[in-house]
Design a binder for these strands. Sequence first.
DNA 1: GAAGCGCTCGAAAGCGCTTTCAATACAGTA
DNA 2: TACTGTATTGAAAGCGCTTTCGAGCGCTTC
Lengths: 343, 343
Amino acid sequence: MSRRAAVRLIDVAEHAGVSLATASRVLSSAGAYRGRGEARERVLASAAELGYEPNLHARALAGSQSSTIALVVHDIRDAYFALIAGAVVAAAEQHGMLVTIVSTYRDPQQEARYLALLRAQRPRAIILAGSGFTNRSAADPIREELQRYEGTGGVVVTLGRQDAGHSIIVGNQEGARSLAHAMVDLGHREFAVVTGPAKLMTVRDRLKGFRRGLEECGIDLDPAAVIHGAATRESGGTVAAQLAEAKHRPTCVFGSFDVVAVGLVAGFQRLGIAVPGEISVAGFGDVPVASDITPSLTTVRLPLEQVGQQAVELALSPDPAVRRSVAFEGVVMLRDSTAAPPA
Amino acid sequence: MSRRAAVRLIDVAEHAGVSLATASRVLSSAGAYRGRGEARERVLASAAELGYEPNLHARALAGSQSSTIALVVHDIRDAYFALIAGAVVAAAEQHGMLVTIVSTYRDPQQEARYLALLRAQRPRAIILAGSGFTNRSAADPIREELQRYEGTGGVVVTLGRQDAGHSIIVGNQEGARSLAHAMVDLGHREFAVVTGPAKLMTVRDRLKGFRRGLEECGIDLDPAAVIHGAATRESGGTVAAQLAEAKHRPTCVFGSFDVVAVGLVAGFQRLGIAVPGEISVAGFGDVPVASDITPSLTTVRLPLEQVGQQAVELALSPDPAVRRSVAFEGVVMLRDSTAAPPA
DNA sequence: GAAGCGCTCGAAAGCGCTTTCAATACAGTA
DNA sequence: TACTGTATTGAAAGCGCTTTCGAGCGCTTC
């Protein structure tokens, strides 16, 4: 294990018989530089021969231009975020950038701490996916972190929140609204919503959209019919049991995360309640498991692939000073977990 | 958006009235340094007041000690890798390290390219998860990359391959072997294996383990009964159709990735073949979807959480020169997709 | 009281690169 | 041929930090 030092730019320069500056210009292909042919070729050849690899730290330090993008998610193990991460990683690599992923496990304190840690890495941009605590007070630590980061020249891209940097609207509200219409079209009038922590923007947006959709159909969503739990499968199962025992059972339950809906379906089935025969269940996200369960889950498909790609585009957009905002729409995927209500 | 420069260490030093060196020592808490009390306190106070944040690039450059760990996976969108990534990210952050994730989408060329890109970032360690093309020839580009990286002082941790750096055995062989025994115990004698590309180590190991398990029970696995497809749900569906039409249908099918098994189950059900009534299906991995489908999937649970944690431990282990190897075992999760063969 | 030890602390030398700045080369024009 | 304008090149100054090296200090030890 000879800890032989890595090849440096100066080694390449000497080997090619040019100055350090020239070698740098050739290899970092700075703008319009083409070299007089001769020198350029020699540098390229030497670099290849010696197996030169730039040191990104040195590059970042000298050029104050980092080549990493930071992605902050709630939980990378969650399919929803994994899908976004996949798209971000793929898009970033197209631009020769690396992605640093941080998983906050839905803890706002953590999130702020991580953001601080991340800033130390001086990433070109921070993409905040699925962050979005609805703390609109002036003292929101996350917003403060973000603003500070922007202040030092960083780019911020947020998904589902719009109080900092570029923002991407992932279609939470619109999607939920469409879903509400679809459920009413199926004949449902009695609803329950099972969702996550009220402090998450995502939760609020989906709920708001669903409620608005119902209102447009002349249906009021009883606040008591909105159940806030965790955004997990287990939570769905627990709530299913509660709903099963309720005196007045809804005909359609909207689990505002696919995993929750999956838990609901499993829960009802365990209790011998037929889905969709006796009760319809819809989810949100169209994560792979949605099509895998039986009955397959009616849900709202979010274009996560494009969202991730777009996030990288915005992250790398040349003029960060002008805030941009891009909206996507969710599309309702009618599958087997919903049907007309029992007669 | 005033692009005000970030606070530097020298700003802190001046504000505290100490030298740059002292400030550095206090803030990077280098070993046994405690300061004479006085100086230390002042530096800490100044840093807090000015909101100092170290520049990791400068740190890495000067100290030649990076604070990122690189994680290479096949596909971060895949639950298996997402689970590993979650554990790695969590464990890394405990050590104040950031994780750079690269997704190679199962392309060996890509993988080698990414490894090169990664090396430019000079991560403290590279964790290669689910890499493992079985190219044992001298010209394996990935092994070459890894060895080169080790040569320059980097640490390598591999999951499921053992030709470089520290290695973690995730239990592919042992797990598959146990599963084979469990299936034979259930009464099965006729098997088929549906698996991924033969060039993946994971595929080979699981197959080898399964075959060995059967042999130990006196059963030979017909090479014709091993079907190599993609490690996807769709592939499972396709193969289910093929198996359904075969003249001699096995009583138990082992899908060596959970997703494949999920596809198999869905495929058989679509064709009206009862699982497990007419045919048993088992998977490997125990990814969340395994418990979500109906019938729930018999599979082998890999301790991915611990694997990820251990990978980080090894990555950060003080003496990289001595190669270490840690083995985990998979445990068979008998669920509803398997039963005794039809009489 | 001199020598020795174990600290803290400051000056300064880099880490490997990008990027001015000034110098030189070359082409094009008169 | 001389003269300007443009492209290419090299020297050198950092980017923000860690880390030797050595000076200085307060002790104990003989």
